[in-house]
Design a protein around this nucleic acid. Sequence first.
RNA 1: GCGCCUGUAGCUCAGUUGGAUAGAGCACGAGACUUCUAAUCUCGGGGUCGGGGGUUCGAUUCCCUCCAGGCGCACCA
Length: 558
Amino acid sequence: MKSVIERVRGAIEMGLVQALGELGSDLNLESMPQVILEQPKEEAHGQWASNLALMLAKPAKRPPREVAQLIVDHFQDPSGLVREIEIAGPGFLNFHLDPAWRQLAVVEILTAGSDYGSCQVGVGKSILLEFVSANPTGPLHIGHGRGAAVGSALASILEAAGYQVTCEFYLNDAGNQINKFAQSLEVRYRQALGEESKLPEDGYHGKDLVELMEELAQRRGESLLSLPQAELQQALVDYALPIKVKAIEKDLAAFGVHFQNWFRESTLHPGAIDSAVAKLKATGQLYEEEQALWLRSTDFGDDKDRVVIRDSGVPTYLAADIAYHDDKYRRGYDKLINIWGADHHGYIVRIKAAAEALGHDPEKLAIIIVQMVNLYRGGLAVTMSKRTGELVTLSEIVEEVGPDAARFFFLMRSSESQLDFDLDLAKEQSDRNPVFYVQYAHARICSILRQAKEQGIEIPKADGEHLSILNSHEEEQLMEKLAQLPLCVGEAAQKMEPHRLAHYAQELAAQFHLFYTRCRVLGSEEELQAGRLLLISATRLVLARTLTLLGISAPERM
RNA sequence: GCGCCUGUAGCUCAGUUGGAUAGAGCACGAGACUUCUAAUCUCGGGGUCGGGGGUUCGAUUCCCUCCAGGCGCACCA
């Protein structure tokens, strides 16, 4: 079921296509141009606008306004909601809708309830969304937090847009970083037992490993030292890895992020990697040089060819990733989305090259790069160093500012912009803090509805009759903003840009706060009160849905 | 040196796949509470859309070039 605003758009598009069909020879059209409607930013320009006449003027060899007039003359409205078409400016067609469309939108919201906002752009299509995918060798840091917020919000938005979404965490539980992890664990274990032992420069410096090994040392004493080194390290990894993975899961859960799949890299060794390599070999995409096996990624636009199997015979990270993506492709999704940190952007060409070399369509794989987060406290940048383990962890942030503020801050900027995260502001309970502004709107509505209930005021049946009384500017603007949600969800989904929803939430909250200041609900004249109760009920639903899509709570009291 | 991202109001950022007079929040200044939560609202000043070319009816948006910042450029992940 499409929303009113979408149905009207579809109807106008259809009407325009039909008009152009009739005008084909008159306008010298060679083929049907793409009809795109946009929402004018200027209120006076109506609800939908088209620049068709401007684009067709040249091939038609006629002035744009004349073309516009021809289109208007041939336009028939299948929706019955277009009240007026105005030719404006250089030749824009502005479609003004019957005011009743707003009431239809509100009735729709109240009927759909918490489902309102969904749309159909992704119906019948499946997506595998991979994000976070952090090494389990340490805690999640703030950069992972941004990826987690963006990924989980995007998942909700895509689902609301009709896609069937699977969220997956690729767990790097094999390979070189696990070797380094093992070495680091051994050092920490020996240190915990009082031995002299030094962490290698490229080891994991985090405090978490110190604590983990101290605990193990306390429990098992020196008993493990009698093992040969390989077995000792294996034992330490077997002990530590599940704990680290659980910690990651716990941090994510506290942040409202959940995955359907945890894909372990170790399951790719060696079978899946061998068969992916064999496949590439068979098609001539691999060659041997200096005892290593190289992928001809330059054939697909890469700067240089990449090593897949080292001269030592050990596969590179890329080898596992190729096998992983081969696996993802073969699972038959319509689209694969990866969310990566900015420091991995150089990897995009490589992995797409590998996908293409394996015979997969690289266009199916979309990679969202999430830029870095700069933390500020007291107006100063918080310095972080991966090398020394001085990272601000996700759990610290969530602890400090709460999951709602953290999520909103991560989501309010476009992913491709670097993010300045002001910890003081995120904690502040004031009008400077945008997350409170939005939640406050929801709480205010709940307060009114609560009091209405206490006073025994019934909320009437949702129909146009009660709503037709709402014709002040504030009320109309609020209704129009409510009607936008399905469009916003559709755009955010198609462009894979969750920050659009965060902006929408702020705009809607602003529109409500303005209404609240100007329009009294309780105690107004009875019919007006009835209409406004319906309006704020609808507003509450839309605010709550928007916040839910972002993974942020909608409090009833503040 | 090469690649990707960014450059829009004092600050942080939006900008509807090329449109109409470039927007929001914060900050600053002036106002609005005996009434549903003032964590709110109203009004105001504020701009060479990094610079310069080009494409066209029309460019913040597309192309070229230069400048500045960030991030990458491994047989690390």
